[in-house]
Nucleic acid binder design. Structure first.
Lengths: 143, 143
DNA sequence: TAGTACGATACTAATTTAGTATCATTTACA
DNA sequence: TGTAAATGATACTAAATTAGTATCGTACTA
């Protein structure tokens, strides 16, 4: 059971990289090189991010991608939604054409609680959060 | 993202059925019929439960399965472990040959918290819990 | 107008989950 | 004693999801 798939993971990394370049336009080629992630896969991911309005794209020579939103408006939960769909832990048992077995239903409550917990932990996490974290860590290392 | 796979789901149902028959020996054929679950799939699941010591089996004519432990000693978390492996939400990102990107590491904390929350919600859930729940519900309906 | 970049989309490959089949062994009992 | 009923072990197939690639088209810049 994975909380984040590779898509999401790479999206986070790509966005982080772009964010740290302060408005420079970044090509997939550069991202791929710097992050050591397959060019074509990254390409697809960036296309999706663009379609979803998280980055905007500039075509042609000198083109590339920039953030379409400030880092504190880019939420991890949105990335998860985009690449993995809504978080629904109980799809299997509960939505399964009306679970034919009443004795499992106590689990629904538990699962709802877990779902809420996941969301409440992840809700405050934005691209900015992740970047700040990095700065803090870097700072600590220099002390 | 599923919290429980079908394996686990069916295991719970099968064990519940067996538990409610008060020590009678139950065949896979009966389980399959009553629970409307594929015979061969159930068969495999019961074989695993047997190997893992949650039920014991009686071979030959008149044989079948019984619980090898009282219902309050059969934990949902064990079933999850058996059929899905340990709950490890961060396998992808963190254990991934040392996540090459420091900026993701704040997620580790969050993910650990979520993992703990899942475990603490599910830890108290035993077969007995699930059965009692059913009794309560049935009771309520008769009032 | 050539080259560089993204847009759309279809395709393949790998992994995980779900489900089936088969042969061997044990047991009850007619 | 031998046959049918049951599980044990294990290998296999199928479906679904995730991961990754390829290709052709379009826009932009120099």
């Amino acid at each position: 059971m994975k909380l984040l798939t590779r898509n999401t993971d790479y999206a986070v990394r790509a966005l982080s990289y772009i964010a740290m370049e302060n408005g420079r336009t970044i090509t997939v080629a550069e991202l791929s090189e710097e992050l050591k992630i397959s060019w074509s896969f990254l390409r697809k991911i960036l296309q999706i991010l663009s379609r979803e309005g998280l980055v905007f794209s500039i075509k042609g020579k000198g083109g590339g991608f920039r953030l379409a939103q400030p880092a504190n408006r880019i939420f991890l939960l949105d990335l998860i939604r985009i690449f993995q769909g809504l978080i629904r832990l109980n799809a299997c048992i509960i939505n399964n054409t009306a679970c034919p077995n009443i004795r499992i239903c106590i689990l629904k409550k538990k699962i709802d609680i877990i779902e809420k917990s996941i969301i409440s932990e992840l809700h405050p996490v934005t691209l900015e959060t992740l970047l700040n974290q990095q700065n803090e860590l870097l700072h600590l290392q220099t002390i």
